[in-house]
Structures are given as C-alpha cells and as structure tokens.
C-alpha cells in the first residue's frame, strides 16, 4: 500500500524529520497559502518553489523521483478541471490549475513524509485543534490498516469459497459490508473495555515531552520569510 511506504519515509532522521511537527505544519501552510494566491503568469515563482521543494525532499534523504511521482496523485482531478478550463478558452489558467495543484500536493507530501502521523497529530494538538477530534483521528489511524486487512481477508475468504467476488450481487456486497460493520463495532467495544480496564480516563496519556525548541521557531520564521519573499519578488 502506498501509505505504508510514506509511513516508512516519515521515520527518517534528517534535519526535516527532527523538526517539531507544529513548526513544519505552519511552514507548510504558509507555502500553501503563497501557492494558492499565485496569479496566472508567475511561472518563475512556481519554478523556484518546485526547486525549493525538490531540494528539501533531497535534504530530507527521501527518494526524489518517487516523491515527485507520488505527488501527482492529485493530477486526475486537476487534469479533469484543467481540460474544462482549457476548452473554455483559458489555457494559461488551466496550466496554472495543474501547477498549483501539483505544488500543493508536493508540499503536503513533504510534510507527511518527514513527520510520523503520531507526531503530526501531536502538532495539530499543539496548534489547539479540538482534542476530541485529534483523539478520534488517532484511533482512526491506528485501526485503518487493521480494518483494511480485515476487509481484504474477508475478500480472500469469499474468493476461496466462490471463485470470484467480481460478480457479487448487491445483496451479497451489502452483507459483506454489514459483517465488516458488525466486526468493527465489536472490535471497537473490545478495545474500549480493554482501555477502561487499564484505567483510561478519556484522554491518552503522553509518553514523552515534545517541546518546541528555539530552532523550530527559527525554521518556521526563515521558511515563511523565504516563501513570502520569493512570492513577492518573483510574482
């Protein structure tokens, strides 16, 4: 699965990996904001951003080619609207939609490839995202692959009995979804009971401190200044 690879990337030890998640989030949002407000004829600025992002990917010791390729996951949607825009006689704008979409996707990918999900959630919480929501996200992330594997196992079981599940009827598919639902629900309740038995009090205890260093603040300031600076001078 694609995410497993990104998850592995995020456990690296480069400079980018050791930064505080909140610092990286703010820097990424600043860059996203600058990208989102780029006007149609600012190709130089786009090129500079692409270069900066590529260099950052390289500096984070990630496989540059595969990261650049992964970021194109946004392209199907982008191409669809770019074609519509181009057909309405605005080819410049269409190209800009594609470029902006790709650069934004690359920015988000750099963030997630250098930040393990638990740290990222801690960063969100540091930025005061509703804690209840962050906790739901923690559980969602924790059980995402578990349940996807469970669904895969159910499909394997069905295939070994019925030959192929390509031809499932609506009723059978609904039954499969229902079984998955009931199993997920049961698992959730077992998890909940197990956590209660261990003294769960409604929030997950912290295992380690995660203080914001002065160098993290410095990184955010420099990154934001550079991003806004490029945007100002070049666009």
């Amino acid at each position: 699965m694609r995410h497993v690879r990104i998850d592995r990337w995020s456990r690296g030890e480069s400079y980018f990996h050791t930064l505080h998640a909140a610092a990286k989030l703010v820097a990424a949002l600043t860059l996203l904001l600058c990208i989102a407000t780029l006007s149609v004829r600012s190709l130089v600025c786009c090129a500079v951003y692409l270069m900066v992002l590529t260099v950052s990917v390289k500096a984070a010791r990630l496989p540059v080619g595969r990261v650049l390729l992964s970021a194109s996951a946004v392209l199907p949607f982008a191409v669809c609207f770019a074609i519509i825009t181009a057909l309405s006689g605005e080819p410049d704008r269409a190209a800009m939609l594609l470029i902006r979409g790709y650069l934004s996707s690359l920015t988000a990918l750099l963030l997630i490839s250098t930040t393990p999900m638990p740290d990222l959630l801690a960063g969100l919480e540091w930025l005061r995202a509703p804690r209840f929501l962050v906790q739901v996200m923690q559980f969602l992330y924790r059980y995402l692959l578990v349940l996807i594997e469970e669904a895969g196992a159910m499909r394997d079981a069905a295939e070994s009995r019925a030959g192929s599940v390509r031809s499932l009827a609506v009723r059978q598919a609904a039954g499969a979804a229902g079984v998955l639902f009931v199993r997920s629900w049961g698992r959730a309740q077992a998890i909940h009971r197990a956590m209660m038995a261990r003294g769960f009090e409604g929030h997950i205890p912290r295992f380690r401190e995660f203080p914001l260093q002065r160098s993290d603040v410095a990184f955010t300031l420099v990154a934001a200044a550079l991003t806004v600076g490029f945007r100002t001078v070049l666009a």
Partner: peptide
C-alpha cells in the same frame, strides 16, 4: 475512531 477506519475499509467492497 474505529468506525472511521471502517468507512475506509468498507470502500474496498465493490457494489
């Protein structure tokens, strides 16, 4: 949280 993960997994089932 687990029901959120369920939604991801349920999207693997083709109707």
């Amino acid at each position: 949280g687990v029901m959120g993960a369920f939604i991801f997994a349920a999207q693997m089932i083709n109707f």
